[in-house]
Simulated scan of single mutants.
Amino acid sequence: MEYDVQERSLDDAELAGLLEAAFAELVTRNGREGRTQVKSGARYFVVLDGEDRAVGCGAVQVFGPDTEHAGDGEVKRMYVAPPARGRGYARALLTALENAAREANHPVLRLTTSERQPEAIALYESCGFVRVDPWGKYATEPTTRCYGKPLNPTS
């Protein structure tokens, strides 16, 4: 089934509500707040249900030039509301995020998740993401799982 995925700005009420729910779930699962800063220029998306309500969100941002993965894209804030899970919304959203990263010419799309999120790990691996060495602050967080996926044939 195809779902409508739309780009939204941070001042969008539906997006804001989903981001707050995502942060709350991270606290519940990981015992700490997951509000890492999203860089300016990040592109935010929501996935809509059959009644045009936003039920999931995600963002793509670029790694800065002073980082070890300069120019790569990074998935941030990937989240689907619990009542909407298991219906393909996350897969549709992740596909849209990959497409946005390709449009921005990111050679690799990277992401992080937690070992406490097995459903996220299963989704990412089923979509072709492979486990990679942790980077930056994640290198010292033993429960974090880092993934990457080449997007362009030259990478």
Rank of each mutant, 00 (worst) to 15 (best):
M78D: 01
V38I: 14
G17T: 00
D12S: 04
Y3A: 13
E98M: 05
P107D: 07
A42K: 03
A22K: 05
F23M: 06
V55H: 08
A84F: 04
E20I: 10
A101K: 01
F45P: 04
E33I: 12
A92P: 00
L111Q: 07
Q37K: 09
L15I: 08
K39Q: 14
G31H: 11
R43K: 12
A100T: 03
A104V: 04
R85G: 09
F23P: 00
Y44W: 15
G88P: 01
T36Y: 14
E33D: 15
Y89F: 14
A24K: 15
V75Q: 01
G73Q: 05
P107K: 09
G56W: 03
V38Y: 08
D4C: 15
L10G: 06
V62T: 09
A92Q: 05
G50I: 12
L109V: 06
E14G: 02
G58C: 06
R91D: 03
D12M: 02
V27H: 11
P107C: 09
D4A: 15
N99D: 14
Q61T: 13
A84H: 11
G71M: 08
L19E: 02
L18P: 06
V27E: 10
Y79I: 03
Q37W: 09
A13E: 02
C57Q: 04
E103T: 11
A92L: 05
L93K: 04
A104M: 06
R87E: 01
L48D: 04
S9T: 13
G56T: 10
G41Y: 06
A54W: 00
V60D: 03
H69W: 07
V60Q: 03
N30Y: 10
P83S: 10
A70E: 06
G64R: 06
R87W: 02
A21E: 01
G34S: 08
D11A: 04
G31D: 09
V75S: 03
L18Y: 04
R8W: 03
G86T: 10
L10F: 01
G34F: 07
N30K: 14
G86C: 09
G50M: 05
V75T: 07
G56L: 08
A81P: 02
E74R: 14
A16Q: 12
K39E: 15
T36K: 14
V80R: 02
P65H: 13
E25C: 06
V46Y: 01
G58I: 07
N99M: 11
D12V: 00
G64S: 08
A22Q: 13
R53D: 00
N30D: 14
F23A: 14
Y79C: 04
R32Q: 15
A96C: 08
D52C: 09
E98Q: 10
A84D: 02
P83K: 10
K76V: 06
K76A: 05
F63K: 09
S9I: 05
V108N: 04
G31I: 12
T28Q: 13
P65N: 13
C57W: 00
A42Q: 10
E98T: 01
M1V: 12
D4R: 15
V46S: 00
E98S: 01
R29C: 12
Y89N: 01
A70F: 01
R110G: 05
N99W: 07
D12H: 03
F23G: 07
A59G: 05
R91S: 07
E7T: 12
A104E: 00
E2V: 14
G86I: 08
K39C: 15
A54L: 05
